[in-house]
Amino acid sequence: MSELACPCGLGLYHQCCAPLHLGNTQAQSAEQLMRSRYSAFAKHDVDYILKTTAVGQQSALDMTAIVDWAKSNQWLQLEVVQANEKIDKNHGKVEFKAHYHDGKQAQIHHEVSHFVKFQQQWYFLDPTTDQQITMKQNCICGSGKKFKQCCAQFV
């Protein structure tokens, strides 16, 4: 088995993010999911990016753009600035800096991402989807609650 470092920076890939990417285990925290998503970008595993996005947002993702973004950059390092796993009962947020090289120069993507835990599984709430969501419709996370009472403040 390869002894390659995990792109997320925490140990060896086969022990760190690979079990998540292969579906053998689930992220136990918002930070772990965010780290595994960074590693998925570095490994060009866009299927993992899709399946770890909130279920109600998956069909709205621009998969071509995600593939292009993942493949057109060399992913250098992940820096977790801070993680708050308990904004409320089912939401967390992670502030991070993704260091990458775009083929011309080094870049830093600085973001505060929000996550939701639904049926014991963490999902990314993508604020970039072009969805028309009303406050009274069912939430994008699948909780059955109205959007305004669940994930609205995080997207």
Score class of each variant (00 low, 15 high):
residue 97 K to N: 15
residue 89 K to W: 10
residue 20 L to F: 05
residue 115 F to A: 11
residue 119 Q to V: 11
residue 100 Y to G: 12
residue 154 F to N: 02
residue 91 H to Y: 08
residue 59 S to R: 09
residue 31 E to S: 01
residue 57 Q to K: 05
residue 101 H to V: 03
residue 30 A to S: 07
residue 85 E to F: 06
residue 19 P to C: 02
residue 113 S to T: 09
residue 68 D to P: 00
residue 134 T to F: 14
residue 73 N to R: 15
residue 101 H to A: 07
residue 51 K to N: 09
residue 77 Q to Y: 08
residue 33 L to Q: 00
residue 131 Q to L: 14
residue 112 V to S: 11
residue 29 S to N: 00
residue 21 H to L: 02
residue 123 Y to W: 05
residue 81 V to E: 14
residue 148 K to S: 05
residue 133 I to G: 01
residue 65 A to V: 10
residue 80 V to Y: 08
residue 140 I to P: 01
residue 36 S to F: 04
residue 143 S to M: 01
residue 125 L to K: 04
residue 73 N to S: 13
residue 123 Y to I: 09
residue 99 H to I: 14
residue 146 K to N: 08
residue 120 Q to I: 06
residue 20 L to V: 02
residue 65 A to L: 12
residue 4 L to G: 00
residue 27 A to F: 00
residue 105 Q to H: 10
residue 16 C to E: 01
residue 89 K to S: 13
residue 14 H to R: 03
residue 148 K to N: 03
residue 154 F to T: 07
residue 80 V to C: 08
residue 39 S to W: 02
residue 140 I to G: 03
residue 129 T to N: 07
residue 45 D to Q: 11
residue 74 Q to H: 14
residue 65 A to G: 12
residue 103 G to V: 09
residue 131 Q to S: 14
residue 33 L to C: 02
residue 131 Q to H: 07
residue 3 E to P: 00
residue 128 T to N: 11
residue 47 D to C: 06
residue 29 S to K: 00
residue 153 Q to E: 05
residue 42 A to D: 02
residue 116 V to M: 07
residue 144 G to K: 14
residue 70 A to G: 13
residue 34 M to D: 01
residue 124 F to A: 04
residue 142 G to T: 03
residue 132 Q to C: 05
residue 91 H to D: 04
residue 100 Y to H: 15
residue 134 T to V: 13
residue 120 Q to K: 10
residue 60 A to G: 13
residue 87 I to K: 14
residue 128 T to Q: 09
residue 94 V to R: 01
residue 144 G to W: 09
residue 132 Q to F: 08
residue 75 W to C: 14
residue 126 D to C: 13
residue 70 A to E: 05
residue 92 G to Y: 08
residue 131 Q to I: 11
residue 64 T to V: 13
residue 152 A to R: 04
residue 82 Q to L: 12
residue 22 L to W: 01
residue 34 M to T: 00
residue 25 T to Q: 11
residue 57 Q to S: 11
residue 71 K to V: 08
residue 62 D to C: 10
residue 25 T to V: 06
residue 152 A to C: 02
residue 26 Q to D: 10
residue 116 V to K: 13
residue 137 Q to N: 09
residue 131 Q to P: 11
residue 122 W to A: 05
residue 30 A to T: 01
residue 22 L to S: 02
residue 40 A to G: 05
residue 148 K to F: 06
residue 95 E to R: 14
residue 113 S to Q: 10
residue 101 H to E: 12
residue 71 K to P: 02
residue 67 V to M: 08
residue 148 K to T: 06
residue 152 A to Y: 08
residue 60 A to S: 13
residue 9 G to D: 06
